[in-house]
Amino acid sequence: MESTTQHWRYDDHIPSEPDCCATIVGMVLEQLEKNGWGNKDTFGIHMAMEEAVMNAIDHGNNRSPDKTVHLVIEICGNRFYSKITDQGEGFDPSTVPDPTEEENLEKDCGRGVMLIRNFVDVVLYNDKGNSLELTKQNSEAEA
């Protein structure tokens, strides 16, 4: 792991434990602050990372102690990138029910996936559905 205020990169496997998610998210928030990201974008990345990593831990790896989540995170000035890969069977994100539909409003399913899409610029899943890439630009940065 290397860390500067200009370019920060994290590449490691974390255990399938919620506390590890909180630790990683805390590190990301710290780096975003160092790079001058504003509250709104920081909140969005926080939300997307929290939901994506917890989905990987809970739904992908079923919190198995034998499985890890591979995380790659890069913050290069005004660009955020992350790739989150679990060791689960994967899923087809197109089959997740739309949580904004009235009949789904009170169901637990699909809200996290939907929030990830709302809070970052680009979300890409691999074919298996066990890995996703998130990208976001600092919307408050001067062009």
């Binding site: 909140f43 926080h46 939300m47 929290e50 939901e51 917890m54 637990d108 809200r111 996290g112 929030l115």
Partner: peptide, 9 residues
Amino acid sequence: SFFSSAAIN
């Protein structure tokens, strides 16, 4: 300052 989807549930 932050509220996850699990908390919303």
